[in-house]
Structure formats: C-alpha cells, structure tokens
Computed example of a mutant assay.
Amino acid sequence: MADSTVWWLLAGVAVAAELTSGTFFLLMLALGAAAGALAAHAGLGLSGQLVTAALVGGGAVAVWMRWRRRRPKGPAPQSDPNVVLDIGQIIHVPAWNTDGTAHVRYRGADWVAQAAAGTSPAPGAWRITAVIGNRLIVEPA
C-alpha cells in the first residue's frame, strides 16, 4: 500500500472520529494527515511526510486555539436568552425567606427564586436573569 493511501485513510478516520465526537481539533489533525498525503504524492520520504503532517496539523491546532482565546465569550447557557426563553420575563415575588430565596408561581408551577448577587430582596416585580435547574435567578424589574 502506498504511503499516500495510508495518510488519506488516517485523514478519513480522523474526520469520522470528529463526526462522532464533535471535537473540532480532530479536523485540524485530519488536515495534517491530508498534508502528509500530499507530501507523499510529492515524493518526500517518510520523515518528510511526518514533519509535514506534524507542522500542518499542529499549526492548525495552535492557530485554532489562539483564535478561540481571542474571541469574546458569550453568556453562560443558563443566562443566554437565546437558550432559555424565560430570561427577561417578569415575576411577582410576594415575600422573601430568611435564606434569600422566595417561592413564586411562574408558568403554572412553583419555583424557587433567588436574588442576583448584589441585590437586596424586597417584595415586588422581579426580572428573570438566569435559570439554574429549578431556581430562577432574578433582579429588580
């Protein structure tokens, strides 16, 4: 079997593994394997193929990691209104417990509300800012 065939098979296995696991880094390593296959087609020896695959695959991973670190982080999923549609809704808190929680009725069910950090609990209207499990994190409306 030709060296390039082995490299193409490795690239295919890496892509298939990426599809089942969802890790983008395996695609970068598949790029490295494809570069190794192209190096084999160009007639480089095994050491040249390995160096090419390592440089391209490792370089792609390094560039991807650097790009991800520089990209601003979005909100946490529990406080992202695109994920949790309850965020931004107004609830009425009749009274707060001594532990800083309140029992509220929302969407026909009983929920536990907790005041967001830096806010003082007081009865009245509150806006949902996050949902963590069955707990609504709220701030004054």
Rank of each mutant, 00 (worst) to 15 (best):
A2P: 15
D3G: 02
W7R: 00
W7N: 00
W8N: 03
W8L: 15
L9R: 00
L10A: 07
L10M: 06
G12I: 03
V13W: 03
V15S: 00
T23R: 13
F24C: 09
L26R: 00
L26W: 01
L27R: 00
L27Y: 00
M28C: 11
L29Q: 04
A30E: 01
A30S: 08
G32W: 00
A33T: 00
A34D: 07
A35S: 01
G36I: 10
G36L: 08
G36F: 11
A37Y: 05
A39E: 01
H41I: 14
H41V: 12
A42Y: 06
G43M: 09
L44F: 12
G45R: 03
L46F: 10
S47E: 15
S47V: 13
A54E: 04
L55C: 14
L55Y: 04
G59L: 03
A60I: 00
A60K: 05
V61N: 08
A62E: 07
V63T: 15
M65C: 10
R66Q: 13
W67P: 08
W67A: 14
R71Y: 10
P72W: 11
G74Y: 02
G74H: 02
A76E: 13
A76S: 12
S79P: 05
D80K: 02
P81S: 10
N82D: 13
N82C: 11
L85A: 13
D86R: 13
D86M: 12
I87R: 05
G88I: 08
G88S: 05
I90R: 12
I91E: 04
I91K: 09
I91H: 08
I91F: 05
V93A: 03
P94Q: 11
A95F: 09
N97I: 10
N97K: 15
N97Y: 13
G100R: 09
T101Q: 11
A102E: 02
H103K: 15
R107Y: 13
A109M: 15
W111I: 02
V112A: 04
A115G: 09
A116I: 10
A116F: 08
A116P: 08
A117H: 12
A117E: 13
G118V: 06
T119E: 14
A122K: 09
G124E: 06
A125F: 14
R127K: 14
T129A: 15
A130R: 05
V131F: 07
V131W: 04
V131Y: 02
G133A: 04
L136F: 01
L136S: 07
E139K: 04
P140K: 01
A141F: 10
A141V: 07
